[in-house]
Structures are given as structure tokens and as C-alpha cells.
């Protein structure tokens, strides 16, 4: 996967988590939603780890400083046209 494809996958799983988060706030005991959240959370974490290894950090706390301060190295999301 190139950077853009991987980012799209992260946007998909990230969106699923955001939407489930809201649903679970008002349905905190819904078993299928809890299970789905667990599955998507795992997928999302794997995609984020892969992205950060290949293309750089998604949060400032994820910077690997052995490579320098990579947080400000690449275009920001509003200019990147993902």
C-alpha cells in the first residue's frame, strides 16, 4: 500500500471507531457494538503502526526521535490532499 492508500484505510477504521464511540455512549451494554469496537480497534492499531513505521508519526508523542523531529517534516493534513 502506498501512503495515500494506507491513509484511506486509517480514515475508514478511524471513522468506524468514532461512530461506534458515539453509539456506545448511549448504548454502553450493546454486545455486538462492543465486539465490533474491539475488532476495529485492533485493525486500526495495526494500520497506524504500519503507517508510522513507513511514513512518519500521526501524533507528536509517536515521534521516534532517533530519526529527528519528524513531526514537522511532512505536509500537514489540510495541504496534503489525502
Amino acid at each position: 500500500m502506498n501512503r495515500q492508500e494506507l491513509m484511506h484505510r486509517i480514515q475508514e477504521t478511524g471513522f468506524a471507531l468514532t461512530d461506534l464511540n458515539l453509539f456506545l455512549d448511549s448504548h454502553p451494554t450493546n454486545a455486538p457494538a462492543l465486539e465490533y469496537f474491539r475488532d476495529v480497534k485492533m485493525q486500526h492499531a495495526e494500520l497506524v503502526a504500519q503507517y508510522e513505521m513507513m511514513f512518519g508519526p500521526l501524533t507528536a508523542f509517536d515521534v521516534d526521535t532517533k530519526q529527528g523531529w519528524t513531526w514537522i517534516r511532512d505536509p500537514w493534513p489540510w495541504e496534503l490532499e489525502d
Binding site: 480514515q11 478511524g14 500521526l58 501524533t59 500537514w76 490532499e81
Partner: peptide
Amino acid sequence: WTYERRLEYPVKIK
């Protein structure tokens, strides 16, 4: 709050 370096949904205007 923590900033995530991504938009929630893509914005790509030519």
C-alpha cells in the same frame, strides 16, 4: 486533547 495528523474524511480540491 491530542492532535492526529489526519483529516476525519479526505478533502482534495483541485
